[in-house]
Design a protein around this nucleic acid. Structure first.
Lengths: 124, 124
DNA sequence: CGGTATCCGCTTCGATACTG
DNA sequence: CAGTATCGAAGCGGATACCG
């Protein structure tokens, strides 16, 4: 099963410690909206408005925060042209594409298995 | 790059809609603690106490909640023996192993690239 | 040992309104 | 068009105490 938890921990003690960078990146990349924004960008370069529509349910605030975070992480590139009206494009960096190449099969599996997993909401 | 966002959306309209099961599963599997617990279980069958130690920083409440969720999702199997003191084991189900087989390469990439990504905390 | 129950702060988030 | 500002509401998550 590739490199398991124990093997990873043996090779790199502390990868799991709460202060480790791995945790930070996990929180950004695997966050509620992070995945969805990254996923949307696998469709190629997109503008703010398109992302807002593609990532259904995201608020402007969260889209802004997520994009800022992912841009700071070097996973997304922001291209702003000083025109009126403004024209801003977002796309995956090379690093972002590396990441998504690994993430996409996972998303595909989830999309295919979601219905069988789908925990019915416990009645309140 | 495998199946992109647009291709997926074309093939299955609504996979992204907020009510879709895909979203639910994403929230469980890609949650802060979900990933880490699943990751820890790639090391094989483990007991509560071991998980508590392996997933550094998790509280008892969140470990319980996460395990209950993942068990309900059919990704983790709970094996309780009615002995004194109690002996409870957790392990990945077959479905869970399928998932983690796809997730591990991703985790490995993140662990390897975390330091370069690692956004320095913005000064307050 | 392996949990559940309760309380509660503190972040997160969404809605709305506003700006360059 | 592409955001920022502000403000409540919700819920995430930790600490503590207790149970089988």
């Amino acid at each position: 099963m590739s490199v398991s938890f124990e093997q990873m921990r043996a090779a790199r003690p502390g990868v799991f410690s709460p202060q480790c960078a791995t945790r930070l990146v996990l929180d950004h990349v695997m966050s509620r909206w992070g995945v969805l924004v990254l996923w949307a960008l696998t469709g190629g370069t997109k503008r703010w408005g398109t992302l807002r529509r593609d990532v259904e349910g995201i608020s402007e605030k969260m889209l802004a925060a997520t994009l800022r975070q992912l841009t700071a992480d070097g996973l997304v590139h922001r291209d702003a042209r000083a025109t009126v009206p403004p024209h801003v494009e977002y796309r995956l960096t090379e690093r972002g594409q590396e990441l998504m190449a690994l993430m996409l099969p996972l998303m595909e599996w989830i999309a295919n298995n979601a219905d069988e997993i789908a925990t019915p909401q416990p009645a309140p």
